[in-house]
Design a protein around this nucleic acid. Structure first.
Lengths: 250, 250
DNA sequence: ATATTGTTTTCCAATATGGGAAACAGATCG
DNA sequence: CGATCTGTTTCCCATATTGGAAAACAATAT
């Protein structure tokens, strides 16, 4: 089991995440997956159920909508995200491509929203985590950070490969980031997911730090030249940055 | 503060909810709000932070995107919700009104999504909880339940008033539910929120239980006659029910 | 009917762990 | 420079948490 201080709360939280991993599971399945004895789990699940973080459908435990409720609050915890959303929507409608907004939290990127013209495939990325080194949004963010922080990040997590195209070499990463800084946009050439290409640009706050990233993504065959895509993003990013500046004033 | 068994996990979860209530807060603010001593809170927040359920911005604790991540999983835990979403989107586009889908979980309604034509005011209800007796979706759901369960619900929670129009009397509620069953749709005449009118119809599963509810909502002056709105909903609901039936087969 | 197997739930004792007062450490401020 | 805010850490005792084991429950099979 654990190595460091196993707080009781952590066990509850791990239980939640086990249910997420298994996309719903029975008591014994959760026990198998986590190694936590069923009797212990049972009491934790009682609490989680009482607090509505988990529900039971028959004998299957599922994540409760309390999590969704709280998640929505988290998603909009910075009201400036709404500013971005409106402009992302406009952009998406203008160019007919999928536009996503992501932020970095704890060394991973999270997609906060995702504007498309067709609602069908909308949002399959929303709420997903992406690695910093293998996503357009992540690389766009990294490119804005000092080398030392990039190195620190590599030291901690390494550069796990997700496809054949993933950058797995530290020097290659530094080169890539340099290229991104030069040309002003990051490209994900199917480094995270086979068949998904994306172009991303970082949005800067008035103080120069990275606020988040906008990207346009899709299957490679459908996207225009990177430079064309980047140009489309650029104007929206500039627009958002101006709006953030305005917001700052009052 | 506590009266019943205060489990450790529960304290952590209450901490999360305190941060939600306060929309971000410092250690001492959370302590004031919950009555939990700062020293205790401190350790809980450490765990919550480690597990990414909470983040710190300066000295303000905020809900972490882990919650959003998990919340999205909860939101789509039943893949049939996607079926509803597509059709709600179509309806919204056809009639130019706001269409929402809600489900009942633990004696409250939760809005799962909300399709609008303009993205600006979209989603301000998403993830919100609504009481069963004071919302269109809630009343539409109650109307499908046996009287005994309705009474049980009233016994447990009472009928708290949210506006002057809220139904606060048990008999009046039963009458209202009877009306809903007769005419086939529920109306929220600003019973939950001043200035918000809504018409809702329950979606039934093939087995007859309530799957969720669709509603059309807006400021009273903008909505057509209830009967007209209901008619628009009816066809989509029938459509969804047919699709659920198909899904059942394979 | 009665085993058989797989659950989940309850019980309980031992002990690891969390609670919270108090001491400590930085800030910020008058 | 003390005073007064914060947040952080320490530490000890009471007790909440654990998890084995057994009991209840369910679903098949014999």
């Amino acid at each position: 089991m654990g190595n460091r201080s196993r707080t009781t709360s952590k066990t509850s939280l791990l239980t939640i995440e086990a249910i997420r991993d298994l996309e719903g599971a029975t008591l014994s399945e959760i026990s198998d997956h986590t190694g936590i004895p069923v009797s212990t789990l049972h009491t934790h699940l009682r609490t989680l159920r009482e607090m509505e973080y988990v529900v039971r459908e028959g004998d299957v435990y599922q994540l409760g909508m309390k999590l969704f409720h709280l998640g929505e609050q988290a998603r909009w915890r910075d009201e400036r995200y709404q500013i971005v959303k409106e402009r992302a929507w406009n952009l998406s409608n203008r160019v007919g491509e999928e536009v996503s907004f992501a932020i970095k939290e704890n060394d991973r990127m999270v997609i906060l929203f995702d504007e498309t013209t067709t609602p069908s495939d909308e949002g399959f990325q929303v709420g997903r985590y992406f690695d910093l080194h293998s996503s357009a949004c992540g690389k766009a963010t990294l490119a804005e950070l000092p080398e030392s922080r990039v190195d620190g990040f590599v030291d901690r997590y390494g550069l796990p490969a997700h496809t054949d195209n993933t950058i797995t070499d530290r020097d290659a990463l530094h080169e890539e980031l340099e290229t991104i800084r030069k040309r002003g946009y990051a490209v994900n050439a199917q480094e995270e997911l086979e068949g998904l290409r994306a172009v991303a640009i970082a949005i800067e706050e008035p103080d120069g730090s990275v606020f988040g990233t906008l990207d346009i993504s899709g299957p490679p065959y459908r996207l225009p030249e990177d430079e064309v895509v980047a140009e489309r993003l650029r104007s929206t990013v500039a627009d958002v940055e101006a709006a953030l500046e305005d917001y700052e004033q009052g």
